[in-house]
């Protein structure tokens, strides 16, 4: 064992961290090497000297100073808006997880970019791409010109088509009921108002006739909203007239 070997392990040896055979070899070297033995003696004295340094008592004023600082911080807390305190609590809770969150966000961003690029490639070179881009389920095929394929139990596509057809029918029915209500009220309207209402209604009917699926549902929903507004306005006007008549107002 050389002096360099011994000196490199001196700290570990003196702290009792070496196993027996290595400690024994170092002790053997120290017996024959004055320079290393003196160095070991110095380090042992230093170690013992550091360990026996006395504990230090803080000045009595320390606790009072801490209490003053804490009181000042609490006053500052009460002056701070609630949202800033909530933000500080949130930050304190999540700060230890910041590295993991940053890593997760980076991974998510990479995944989004990869998927976006993949989807774009799939759109441009569709025939060459092995994996087909995701296809949204097609719903509500409008009145198929040929008889649908025979459905079997659990045929999800057929069930979805039935649901879509039922939904469209219910939107149309609601709209048509409102049309008949408004047509009753229409008799008392001015010619200008009648013209505006007729034009609007014709527009909805034309759009519904040309649109399919969800677009047609939307037309019926918009039509229903418009007609509800008309009916409510008409009801309010009629009510105002009744009240005016009751109270003898013009």
């Amino acid at each position: 064992m050389t002096c360099d070997d011994v000196r490199a392990k001196l700290t570990a040896y003196l702290d009792g961290e070496l196993e027996d055979d290595r400690g024994s070899a170092i002790r053997g070297h120290l017996r024959g090497c004055d320079a290393c033995r003196h160095m070991a003696a110095d380090e042992a004295a230093l170690r013992d000297g550091l360990r026996s340094l006395p504990p230090l008592d803080p000045p009595n004023a320390l606790w009072a100073g801490i209490q003053r600082r804490l009181a000042a911080e609490e006053v500052a807390d009460s002056d701070r808006p609630a949202w800033r305190r909530a933000l500080a609590r949130f930050a304190a809770r999540w700060r230890p997880l910041a590295p993991q969150l940053a890593l997760g966000s980076a991974a998510l961003a990479v995944a989004v970019v990869v998927l976006a690029v993949h989807h774009r490639v799939g759109t441009i070179d569709e025939p060459q791409v092995a994996i087909a881009p995701p296809v949204l389920p097609k719903v509500a095929p409008p009145a198929p010109p040929i008889a649908p394929a025979p459905t079997i139990d659990g045929d999800v596509t057929a069930e979805l088509a039935d649901d879509a057809a039922n939904r469209t029918a219910s939107y149309r029915q609601a709209a048509e009921e409102l049309v008949s209500t408004c047509m009753t009220a229409r008799a008392s309207w001015t010619d200008d108002r009648k013209a505006v209402f007729d034009a609007k209604l014709a527009g909805f009917r034309k759009s519904a006739a040309t649109a399919n699926g969800r677009a047609r549902d939307k037309v019926y929903r918009d039509m229903r909203s418009y007609l509800q507004g008309v009916a409510i306005r008409d009801e309010v006007t009629a009510n105002d007239r009744r009240l005016a008549g009751t109270r003898g107002l013009p």
Partner: peptide
């Protein structure tokens, strides 16, 4: 190489941590 007395060799001492 001269031999050194056993008790003069610096020996390991495990730390005695403060309470």
């Amino acid at each position: 190489m001269t031999e050194t007395a056993i008790d003069s060799i610096p020996t390991p001492a495990l730390a005695e941590p403060r309470p």
